[in-house]
Each structure stands twice: as structure tokens, then as C-alpha cells.
Design a binder for these strands. Structure first.
Lengths: 154, 154
DNA sequence: CTCGTAAGGTTCAAATTTGAACCATCCGGC
DNA sequence: GCCGGATGGTTCAAATTTGAACCTTACGAG
């Protein structure tokens, strides 16, 4: 029952800013992607992660770790993308239990088509609003935070 | 059909960090609040916003703007909180259409009970991981981002 | 005063998300 | 070789979220 260490003014400002910016940016991009490409941000992220992986494919668990969703959420979204023809499931040769999600040709196309608009939106909402110094600091700071939390989860 | 301005390395790192940190922190706090206080982060935020407002009450629209949810989402959550007895609805004297959400005594108690654990989690996930300089910069940077986006929405 | 439009909230159906339960397979130790 | 606990994914029901449609009330221009 220790007295909690409340946040001081700067800390509070950082926290409020974090929450607000987080939600506002997410909301903004969600809408942009849905309107322009018919994809949710989660779905777009799946395509991005796959495109960055060798052979455009990743194990489900691996993919779930890179995005930050539950396993069941990923199953659902991959199924959606599969129905849409952007992703295909392949079984893993070395482990019968394993499943690869793989970008289809159509998936590559969808990603290429969606990327420019998305990048523009990211710039407008976040990147181009900041100075290069702020960006560098932000990258460093949030990178630290993300790494710590990932490590803590493991 | 202009060639899009892709993100350079720093920009990309900032963006990836933002997305990752955002999701990881949200996930972490969501769980902490649910486990320790039986509240979702959205619900907790509603209590916080109300507690910070005069008379512990706000108009629905006003509240929806401060959180970053849809109107219907807010209606839903306020209804949940009302069922739980933490919030009450009152009609607005000056505008028949208006509705005030007001913190009940029980709501104040719930907030006081939940706050210490939540603050501790926020510190652990974000605040205490950073140096004072990083925090100050983060507050400034994200404040800017949030303000711009709010302005853009208006 | 009167109309047309904007604003405030709620309702509704549809899409997502989540954790727990579950099934099958894998692997290290004995 | 064989057992018991971890792993990989899916399924399921329940909770949440969202945008659009809707109803009622405000309010400013004529």
C-alpha cells in the first residue's frame, strides 16, 4: 500500500500526448486505408510484413509476433485475406502443425497499389509534421520502448 | 501519379517504432486494467476525463471528442459503466437533446482504486524507461502531432 | 414566424477482437 | 522407444467497435 508515484507535469504531458496521438493517428490511417484500398490497417500490416519476409511468406506465429495481435485475431484476418485472394496458406514441410501465410501475386499488386497512398497519409499525419531532429529522437525513444516491451513479453 | 516520397531510414524507424510501441503499450495497459480493476482502457479513460471535468460530468459529444472514439462507441461504453453503477446519465437543462455523463460516488471510488496500479503500469511501460530529456521531447513531439490532427479533424 | 439544415444521441447490423478451450504434433529426458 | 509437457493453429462464444440510418431538437436566414 505504498503511496503511488503520480506523474509530474512533463510525464503527464508525455502520457496524454502518447494516448491522444496514438488514437488519432490510428483512426486517421484506418480510414485512409479503408477508403482508398479497402483494407484495414491490420490487413495492410500483414501484407507489409509478408512482403518484407523471404519468399513473401511467414509462419503464423512469427507473423502474429510482428504484428501485435492475438493468435486468433491473426487467424481471422488471414482467412479474410485468403478469401480476398491476397494471401494463401501453405503447410510447413518441416512441421506438420505449422502454417505459412504467403503473399499471392494479387497480394503483391494490392500492396503496391495501396502503399503510395498510405505513405502519403503517414507523412501527413506524423512524419512531415516533425523536424528531422524530432524524428530521430522519436525513432530512438519509441524503438527503446518497443524493444523493452517485446523483451518483457518473452 | 507522382512518384511517392518513400520514407527514408530514420522516418521508417520512427514510424515502425510508433506502430509497435503504440500496440505494445496499449496491449499491456489493457490487460493490466482488466486484470486489476475490471475496466477496459476506454472505460478507464472515460472515468479519468469525467473526473477532470467540473462536477465530474461532461456532455456526451464533448466526452467523445476527448477520448478518441465514435459516438456510438461512447454510447455503448457509457451504458456499460451505467450498468456497473460508475456513471450516471443526466439530461441537460439548457438543451433537451443533450446528455451529461456524470461520475457517481462509486465511480470516484473505482477510479481512486484503479489509479495507482494504472500509473505504475504506465511508468513501467513507458515513463520510467525514458530519460527526462527523452520524456520532455516526447511530450513536445506527440503534443504537436495530436494538436495538428485534432485541428485537422475540426 | 417558418423553413431547411445542422447538431446531439441512440439504435442497428456487420465486422473485429480477444481469451479460453481444444486438438494434434513435437521434443527432451529417462 | 515412451511419456509429459510445450508449441502451433483453429474454433468458439462473448465483448467491443464502427458507420450509417434515424429521430428529435436547435437555430439562423429570410
Amino acid at each position: 500500500m505504498d503511496e503511488p508515484r503520480w506523474l509530474n507535469e512533463t510525464e503527464m504531458a508525455a502520457w496524454r500526448g502518447f494516448v491522444a496521438a496514438t488514437n488519432l493517428v490510428a483512426r486517421r490511417l484506418e480510414r485512409q486505408l479503408k477508403d482508398d484500398a479497402g483494407l484495414s490497417h491490420t490487413q495492410y500490416e500483414i501484407l507489409v510484413q509478408l512482403s518484407a519476409a523471404p519468399a513473401g511468406s511467414l509462419r503464423m506465429t512469427d507473423l502474429a509476433d510482428r504484428l501485435v495481435t492475438s493468435k486468433s485475431g491473426l487467424t481471422y484476418q488471414v482467412t479474410q485475406l485468403e478469401k480476398a485472394g491476397l494471401v494463401a496458406r501453405r503447410s510447413c514441410p518441416s512441421d506438420v502443425r505449422g502454417v505459412f501465410a504467403e503473399l499471392t501475386e494479387q497480394g503483391w499488386q494490392a500492396l503496391r497499389a495501396a502503399a503510395p497512398g498510405h505513405v502519403a497519409a503517414v507523412r501527413e499525419a506524423l512524419i512531415d509534421v516533425l523536424t528531422p531532429e524530432q524524428l530521430a529522437a522519436l525513432a530512438d525513444t519509441l524503438g527503446t520502448v518497443a524493444d523493452r516491451l517485446r523483451a518483457a513479453d518473452a
